[in-house]
Design a protein around this nucleic acid. Structure first.
Lengths: 251, 251
DNA sequence: TAGTGGTCTAGACCACATC
DNA sequence: ATGTGGTCTAGACCACTAC
């Protein structure tokens, strides 16, 4: 059973997508929506809060809500998983494991994965492609407790996220992402077919379970021009953070 | 008067920062917090919702909330304004206008700023420095209606955002940001003192008023290694979006 | 001044986690 | 079986916007 407010949010989102409420237009008042959907004002507020965090509408005390945009944010799965994102966008995606080996956790990795230095981890190098073109190089370190399940995945598997869910029921629930630009190194340039020193978009991330237990720590590098990250924010909700770049050593 | 739930959120946030609830630990139940703060459960839920969108705590039905991290997200102002961000981080910041001229809006700019092509805009090139080192090159296009106020700002002004607020009461309320990596061009490399073709982190953004009226469209390029963008997300809340890079022409 | 969103309450029922 | 967070209601008052 899906929640009432989700249904209301969906109806309003559809209306916005259809252009019934064009960008810049006002939404009906909460009271009006409550009547229309035969729900309490609280439920209606939950619904519009969903749209607000999606960046579709904005609001301020005393004035009607306004429509800010029509594109919808992607789901967490689509952000976390390259394959799920690419599929949702309608691209043909493939992946290939190039290296895979167990070793002891380094100092940085241990901190990221909440392990003791030297505890076993699984290091994997994967090349991801869109429409047959190599687009992203992924260097992932998995915590030891999930390593067996990762090793059972076939090397050409498209979606590791999905494989881990299906094999051991693992759900990625929270992520932290660090985004910056780096120059392509020797290995990067060879595998991504770009010149050495050319710009790459780097996304480093830690992903954890529902319980807050870190599962993986990854360094993903995208060929310049292949992908863009997009964020909507407001005075009220601000997910994005800018940091000085000298905070952590290269992995 | 600040809201009750904000105060509760602050107390809980402080407790997390102090390590009273370390990363991975559980928060008290809503009922317990309601008693402790002499507030209703709804108000307590508003408070923990704040912490959840800040990425500090996570939650799932049936289980206690857990602490995910200790770093707090920055404010919208700190994301939008280079100067306000740098100051909040404790850096000495400076800026210099290198070029400034009025012209007609190009096709892309017109779309971004919700103008007709050819309508007047103000184009400004600024170099931003941290601790005296050039770090970011900012190419901003302002909508014509705000141009006079921008032109009155002195060329060495640190914070344009603050200047516009103080002079005409302009408030930046919503932003959309596109983040990717590009190679330094001729002008980039000269002004940022890097080699041609070296990697830059690019942030393009549109900022609008409370009413949803676009104010500026900007292309900011950071020297690699100088800044990192950081995002926390979860299955529930997902502000970040990844897109194919071939969507829009270079400005 | 009237309308609107922001805040807060007190209570209820349900779905899920934990033991 | 018990506790927990997720959802929903009905009402109230306030701060702010728009006119």
């Amino acid at each position: 059973m899906t929640a009432r407010y989700m249904g209301i949010a969906e109806e309003l989102r559809d209306a916005i997508m259809r252009g019934e409420y064009p960008v810049g237009a006002q939404l009906p008042s909460e009271a009006e929506l409550a009547t229309r959907f035969a729900a309490s004002r609280g439920t209606v507020r939950q619904a519009v809060a969903v749209l607000a965090t999606e960046g579709l509408v904005g609001s301020r005390q005393g004035a009607r809500r306004i429509v800010l945009g029509r594109e919808r944010s992607q789901s967490f799965a689509e952000l976390h998983s390259f394959a799920q994102w690419a599929r949702a966008m309608g691209y043909r995606v493939s992946g290939q494991v190039l290296q895979q080996r167990r070793r002891g956790a380094g100092a940085t990795e241990a901190v990221r994965l909440a392990l003791q230095p030297g505890e076993p981890v699984l290091s994997v190098l994967r090349l991801r492609s869109l429409e047959g073109e190599p687009v992203m190089l992924e260097r992932t370190v998995y915590a030891g407790w999930i390593a067996p399940a990762v090793e059972r995945i076939e090397p050409g598997c498209e979606s590791v996220t999905q494989a881990l869910y299906e094999s051991v029921g693992l759900v990625f629930a929270y992520g932290e992402h660090l985004i910056d630009a780096v120059a392509a190194g020797v290995q990067d340039s060879k595998l991504l077919a770009v010149r050495r020193g050319s710009p790459l978009l780097r996304q480093r991330r830690v992903t954890t379970t529902h319980e807050g237990r870190p599962v993986e720590w990854s360094d993903d590098r995208y060929r310049a021009g292949s992908v863009t990250f997009s964020i909507r924010n407001s005075v009220d909700a601000n997910p994005l953070v800018r940091q000085m770049g000298d905070l952590r050593p290269a992995p």
